[in-house]
Amino acid sequence: MSQYRIMVIDDEKIVCDMAKMSLEQEGYIVETFLNAEPALSRLKEKRFDVVVTDYKMKGIDGMEVLRAVKRLYPDTEVIMITAFANLDTLIEALRGEVHDFFPKPLKIKELKSSIQRALNRKR
């Protein structure tokens, strides 16, 4: 069986590093990006199964990442992380067909099971 590809976008380096270390334990291929622009160009050349993105970032924000991913690969799942979720953000994310929505501080176990659910659904 081929390995699943996971992309993590967050402007905090530690989030990227820790997510990569932890997710690689589950046997995923993980690529991380500190901002959305190079991440989106990478997506154009390579399909990922799940994209985990921060909501609040300089330049392109999480919501735009969600839309861009869905345009490119409708069945790639997007998981969004945000420090402050208000109802409007949540509704906008749901309409953009976000797979899951996590507040900070992030629980890695919950993230992992969410990714697992997303991958199961695709199967």
């Binding site: 997510a19 501080p105 992030l106």
Partner: peptide, 8 residues
């Protein structure tokens, strides 16, 4: 959040 992730 970083501390939390490092700890986990």
């Amino acid at each position: 959040n970083n501390i939390s992730m490092i700890v986990q």
